[in-house]
């Protein structure tokens, strides 16, 4: 099929741009480890609240400046509802839902993932700045969805 010369130039430049974009996404994902949360572990959603480790939702210190937050998402709150870590800590969040689909987002960080019942969702983040961080649900989960939030305090 014949194409106009200018159209060829246009499409080639478009294709080059798209390839560059994909390379950036790919390198960031595969070489620098910036993969989207894709944890494969499953759990029985009805039993989640009595299955270890989710039977005791908590924040624990697991290493030098490293913490693990085991959290449950339930309509319309997260447990534990108050957590504190010192500044500079890396927190590994491990979250599951006992009922419907929830979201897990901390504004002004890159923490953002879905919490699907039946699966365990994981994400890690290093909190360099002190402050009172909001952890909110960003997937509609029912009439109280807009109140579903807790805070994480990062101490200086």
């Amino acid at each position: 099929m014949h194409m106009h010369k200018y159209e060829k130039i246009w499409l080639w430049s478009g294709a080059v741009c798209l390839t560059v974009f994909l390379l950036i996404v790919g390198v960031s994902a595969y070489a620098m480890g910036n993969q989207p949360p894709s944890h494969m572990e499953t759990i029985d959603p009805k039993e989640a609240a009595v299955t270890a480790p989710f039977d005791k939702p908590r924040m624990t210190k697991v290493g030098d400046q490293e913490y693990e937050a085991i959290m449950l998402a339930q309509a319309f709150t997260f447990t534990p509802s108050k957590m504190t870590v010192p500044k500079g800590s890396t927190v590994h969040f491990k979250v599951t839902s006992t009922d419907v689909v929830h979201g897990f987002q901390i504004p002004s960080t890159n923490v953002n993932m879905m919490v699907t019942p039946g699966y365990v969702s994981k994400i890690s983040y290093t909190f360099e700045e002190p402050g009172k961080y909001l952890i909110l649900c960003n997937e509609y989960c029912g009439v109280g969805h807009q109140v579903m939030a807790v805070t994480l305090e990062v101490m200086s």
């Binding site: 790919g26 994902a29 989207p36 949360p37 944890h39 993932m113 879905m114 699907t116 699966y119 969702s121």
Partner: peptide, 11 residues
Amino acid sequence: LEPGISHSWKF
């Protein structure tokens, strides 16, 4: 951003 789908298929 959801669990249960591997990142290679997402990519």
